[in-house]
Simulated scan of single mutants.
Amino acid sequence: MLYFLSVRISVIAMGAAFLFFIFNHLKGWILLIAIALIPISITLAYNTPHFKKRFEPSHTENAVLEDVDYRKLHWEAVFMSIKHKLLLGRGTEGDRDDLHSIYNDKKLTAAYEENYNAHNQLLEIGLDFGILGMVIFLLYVWFLIKNAITHNNKLLLLIIIIFALYSITESIFVRHSGIILFSLLTSLLILKKEDEIV
Protein backbone atom coordinates (compact mmCIF):
# COMPACT_ATOMS: atom_id res chain seq x y z
CA MET A 1 0.00 0.00 0.00
CA LEU A 2 2.82 2.39 0.87
CA TYR A 3 4.36 1.73 -2.54
CA PHE A 4 1.19 2.85 -4.34
CA LEU A 5 0.80 5.92 -2.13
CA SER A 6 4.45 6.82 -2.83
CA VAL A 7 4.70 9.11 0.14
CA ARG A 8 8.28 9.21 1.38
CA ILE A 9 7.33 10.07 4.92
CA SER A 10 5.25 6.87 5.11
CA VAL A 11 8.37 4.82 4.37
CA ILE A 12 10.18 6.59 7.21
CA ALA A 13 7.21 5.98 9.53
CA MET A 14 7.13 2.34 8.50
CA GLY A 15 10.86 2.12 9.28
CA ALA A 16 10.21 3.55 12.77
CA ALA A 17 7.44 1.01 13.37
CA PHE A 18 9.65 -1.79 12.08
CA LEU A 19 12.47 -0.75 14.44
CA PHE A 20 10.01 -0.71 17.34
CA PHE A 21 8.85 -4.20 16.45
CA ILE A 22 12.29 -5.75 15.97
CA PHE A 23 13.81 -4.27 19.12
CA ASN A 24 10.87 -5.42 21.22
CA HIS A 25 10.40 -8.89 19.72
CA LEU A 26 13.62 -10.13 18.11
CA LYS A 27 16.97 -11.10 19.58
CA GLY A 28 20.42 -12.23 18.50
CA TRP A 29 21.36 -12.76 14.87
CA ILE A 30 17.72 -12.48 13.73
CA LEU A 31 17.71 -8.92 15.12
CA LEU A 32 20.88 -8.08 13.16
CA ILE A 33 19.40 -9.47 9.92
CA ALA A 34 16.20 -7.48 10.46
CA ILE A 35 18.18 -4.27 11.06
CA ALA A 36 20.19 -4.87 7.86
CA LEU A 37 16.96 -5.32 5.87
CA ILE A 38 15.69 -1.81 6.67
CA PRO A 39 18.12 0.22 4.50
CA ILE A 40 18.04 -2.45 1.79
CA SER A 41 14.23 -2.31 1.62
CA ILE A 42 14.13 1.49 1.60
CA THR A 43 16.77 1.67 -1.14
CA LEU A 44 14.90 -0.86 -3.29
CA ALA A 45 11.60 0.99 -2.83
CA TYR A 46 13.09 4.38 -3.75
CA ASN A 47 14.75 3.01 -6.87
CA THR A 48 11.60 1.60 -8.43
CA PRO A 49 10.25 3.50 -11.46
CA HIS A 50 6.99 4.37 -9.66
CA PHE A 51 8.80 6.16 -6.81
CA LYS A 52 11.24 7.90 -9.13
CA LYS A 53 8.41 9.25 -11.28
CA ARG A 54 6.43 10.36 -8.23
CA PHE A 55 9.34 12.45 -6.97
CA GLU A 56 10.45 14.25 -10.07
CA PRO A 57 11.18 17.95 -9.50
CA SER A 58 8.20 20.27 -9.08
CA HIS A 59 7.41 22.98 -11.59
CA THR A 60 6.74 26.62 -10.93
CA GLU A 61 6.08 29.23 -13.59
CA ASN A 62 9.74 30.24 -13.45
CA ALA A 63 11.70 27.10 -12.75
CA VAL A 64 11.90 23.42 -11.92
CA LEU A 65 12.59 22.88 -8.22
CA GLU A 66 13.61 19.91 -6.14
CA ASP A 67 11.07 18.81 -3.53
CA VAL A 68 12.85 20.46 -0.58
CA ASP A 69 13.09 23.84 -2.35
CA TYR A 70 9.48 23.63 -3.48
CA ARG A 71 8.31 22.83 0.07
CA LYS A 72 10.29 25.79 1.44
CA LEU A 73 8.46 28.13 -0.94
CA HIS A 74 5.16 26.41 -0.18
CA TRP A 75 5.58 26.72 3.61
CA GLU A 76 6.79 30.29 3.27
CA ALA A 77 3.50 31.10 1.52
CA VAL A 78 1.57 29.41 4.35
CA PHE A 79 3.50 31.44 6.98
CA MET A 80 2.64 34.63 5.11
CA SER A 81 -1.02 33.63 5.09
CA ILE A 82 -1.05 32.77 8.81
CA LYS A 83 0.18 36.31 9.58
CA HIS A 84 -3.12 37.72 8.26
CA LYS A 85 -5.11 36.05 11.08
CA LEU A 86 -2.31 35.38 13.55
CA LEU A 87 -4.04 34.89 16.90
CA LEU A 88 -7.21 32.91 16.15
CA GLY A 89 -6.91 31.90 12.49
CA ARG A 90 -9.79 31.65 10.03
CA GLY A 91 -11.80 28.82 11.58
CA THR A 92 -12.38 25.48 9.92
CA GLU A 93 -14.73 26.93 7.34
CA GLY A 94 -12.64 30.02 6.70
CA ASP A 95 -11.66 30.87 3.15
CA ARG A 96 -8.08 30.59 2.02
CA ASP A 97 -8.19 33.06 -0.83
CA ASP A 98 -5.18 34.94 0.52
CA LEU A 99 -3.15 31.69 0.69
CA HIS A 100 -4.01 30.83 -2.91
CA SER A 101 -3.22 34.39 -3.91
CA ILE A 102 0.22 34.06 -2.29
CA TYR A 103 0.72 30.74 -4.13
CA ASN A 104 -0.05 32.60 -7.34
CA ASP A 105 2.30 35.49 -6.48
CA LYS A 106 5.12 33.04 -5.74
CA LYS A 107 4.41 31.30 -9.07
CA LEU A 108 3.62 28.00 -7.32
CA THR A 109 1.44 26.88 -10.19
CA ALA A 110 0.42 23.44 -8.94
CA ALA A 111 -0.30 24.73 -5.42
CA TYR A 112 -2.50 27.50 -6.86
CA GLU A 113 -4.33 25.42 -9.46
CA GLU A 114 -4.92 22.43 -7.17
CA ASN A 115 -5.74 24.48 -4.03
CA TYR A 116 -3.02 22.80 -1.96
CA ASN A 117 -3.36 22.65 1.78
CA ALA A 118 -0.40 23.51 4.05
CA HIS A 119 1.27 20.08 3.72
CA ASN A 120 2.30 20.36 7.37
CA GLN A 121 -0.12 19.65 10.22
CA LEU A 122 1.10 22.36 12.58
CA LEU A 123 0.90 24.99 9.83
CA GLU A 124 -2.55 23.68 8.89
CA ILE A 125 -3.69 24.24 12.48
CA GLY A 126 -2.12 27.70 12.34
CA LEU A 127 -4.20 28.56 9.27
CA ASP A 128 -7.45 27.41 10.89
CA PHE A 129 -6.91 28.28 14.58
CA GLY A 130 -3.96 30.67 14.68
CA ILE A 131 -1.16 30.72 17.23
CA LEU A 132 -3.59 29.87 20.03
CA GLY A 133 -4.64 26.66 18.27
CA MET A 134 -1.03 25.72 17.59
CA VAL A 135 -0.17 26.11 21.28
CA ILE A 136 -3.16 24.02 22.39
CA PHE A 137 -2.28 21.29 19.88
CA LEU A 138 1.36 21.20 21.03
CA LEU A 139 0.24 21.02 24.68
CA TYR A 140 -1.99 18.06 23.82
CA VAL A 141 0.87 16.27 22.07
CA TRP A 142 3.11 17.02 25.08
CA PHE A 143 0.44 15.53 27.38
CA LEU A 144 0.37 12.35 25.26
CA ILE A 145 4.17 12.06 25.24
CA LYS A 146 4.38 12.65 29.00
CA ASN A 147 1.67 10.05 29.62
CA ALA A 148 3.44 7.51 27.39
CA ILE A 149 6.78 8.04 29.15
CA THR A 150 5.27 8.06 32.65
CA HIS A 151 3.43 4.77 32.08
CA ASN A 152 6.18 3.21 29.93
CA ASN A 153 3.62 2.94 27.14
CA LYS A 154 5.94 2.28 24.19
CA LEU A 155 3.15 1.65 21.72
CA LEU A 156 1.52 5.02 22.46
CA LEU A 157 4.90 6.70 22.09
CA LEU A 158 5.40 4.95 18.73
CA ILE A 159 1.97 6.09 17.51
CA ILE A 160 2.80 9.68 18.49
CA ILE A 161 6.17 9.48 16.73
CA ILE A 162 4.58 8.08 13.56
CA PHE A 163 1.90 10.79 13.50
CA ALA A 164 4.57 13.43 14.20
CA LEU A 165 6.61 12.16 11.25
CA TYR A 166 3.58 12.28 8.96
CA SER A 167 2.74 15.76 10.23
CA ILE A 168 6.01 17.16 8.89
CA THR A 169 4.93 16.85 5.25
CA GLU A 170 1.22 16.03 5.42
CA SER A 171 -1.89 17.71 6.78
CA ILE A 172 -3.27 14.48 8.19
CA PHE A 173 -6.15 16.00 10.14
CA VAL A 174 -7.85 17.49 7.08
CA ARG A 175 -9.23 14.02 6.34
CA HIS A 176 -11.67 12.06 8.48
CA SER A 177 -9.43 9.00 8.33
CA GLY A 178 -6.53 10.90 9.96
CA ILE A 179 -8.72 12.42 12.67
CA ILE A 180 -10.49 9.17 13.50
CA LEU A 181 -7.35 7.03 13.46
CA PHE A 182 -5.35 9.39 15.68
CA SER A 183 -8.25 9.90 18.12
CA LEU A 184 -9.06 6.21 18.33
CA LEU A 185 -5.50 4.98 18.76
CA THR A 186 -4.44 7.59 21.30
CA SER A 187 -7.69 7.25 23.29
CA LEU A 188 -7.40 3.46 23.49
CA LEU A 189 -3.70 3.43 24.26
CA ILE A 190 -3.79 6.16 26.89
CA LEU A 191 -6.13 3.99 28.96
CA LYS A 192 -3.97 0.88 28.73
CA LYS A 193 -1.52 -0.11 31.41
CA GLU A 194 1.94 -1.34 30.42
CA ASP A 195 1.16 -5.02 31.09
CA GLU A 196 -2.03 -4.89 28.97
CA ILE A 197 -0.32 -3.63 25.81
CA VAL A 198 0.19 -6.33 23.24
Rank of each mutant, 00 (worst) to 15 (best):
Ile22Trp: 05
Asn24Phe: 05
Asn24Met: 04
Leu26Ser: 03
Gly28Val: 09
Trp29Asp: 02
Ile30Pro: 00
Ile30Trp: 05
Leu31Gly: 04
Leu32Val: 08
Ile33His: 04
Ile33Glu: 00
Ala34Cys: 04
Ile35Gln: 02
Ile35Arg: 00
Ala36Leu: 10
Leu37His: 02
Leu37Ile: 05
Ile38Glu: 06
Pro39Ala: 04
Pro39Val: 01
Pro39Asp: 05
Ile40Arg: 06
Ile40Tyr: 09
Ser41Met: 08
Ser41Thr: 11
Ile42His: 05
Thr43Asn: 15
Thr43Ala: 15
Thr43Phe: 15
Thr43Cys: 11
Leu44Arg: 01
Ala45Trp: 10
Ala45Gly: 00
Ala45Pro: 00
Tyr46Leu: 15
Tyr46His: 13
Asn47Asp: 04
Asn47His: 07
Pro49Cys: 08
His50Glu: 15
His50Ala: 13
Phe51Gln: 01
Lys52Phe: 03
Lys53Tyr: 09
Arg54Met: 08
Arg54Ala: 11
Arg54Phe: 10
Arg54Ser: 12
Phe55Ile: 02
Phe55Trp: 11
Glu56Val: 11
Ser58Pro: 06
Ser58Met: 13
Ser58Asp: 13
His59Met: 12
Glu61Phe: 14
Glu61Leu: 15
Ala63Leu: 12
Val64Asn: 14
Val64Arg: 14
Leu65Asp: 01
Glu66Thr: 12
Asp67Cys: 01
Asp67Gly: 10
Val68Gln: 12
Asp69Thr: 08
Tyr70Glu: 05
Tyr70Cys: 01
Tyr70Ile: 04
Tyr70Ser: 03
Arg71Lys: 10
Lys72His: 08
Lys72Tyr: 09
Leu73Met: 10
Leu73Asn: 08
Leu73Cys: 06
His74Phe: 04
His74Pro: 02
His74Lys: 06
Trp75Val: 06
Trp75Ser: 03
Ala77Leu: 05
Val78Asp: 01
Val78Thr: 02
Val78Leu: 03
Phe79Trp: 14
Phe79Leu: 15
Ser81Thr: 15
Ser81Tyr: 10
Ser81Asp: 09
Ile82Val: 12
Ile82Pro: 05
Ile82Ser: 03
Ile82Leu: 00
His84Lys: 15
Lys85Thr: 07
Lys85Asp: 05
Leu86Phe: 15
Leu86Val: 12
Leu87His: 09
Leu87Glu: 14
Leu87Gly: 08
Leu87Gln: 12
Gly89Tyr: 06
Gly89Thr: 03
Gly89Leu: 07
Gly89His: 06
Arg90Leu: 03
Gly91Trp: 07
Thr92Pro: 13
Thr92Ile: 15
Glu93Asp: 12
Glu93Gln: 12
Glu93His: 14
Glu93Ser: 14
Glu93Met: 11
Gly94Phe: 05
Gly94Arg: 09
Gly94Ile: 04
Asp95Phe: 03
Asp95His: 07
Asp95Thr: 11
Asp95Trp: 04
Arg96Pro: 02
Arg96Ile: 07
Asp97Thr: 07
Asp97His: 08
Asp98Ala: 11
Asp98Ser: 13
Leu99Ala: 03
Leu99Glu: 01
His100Gly: 07
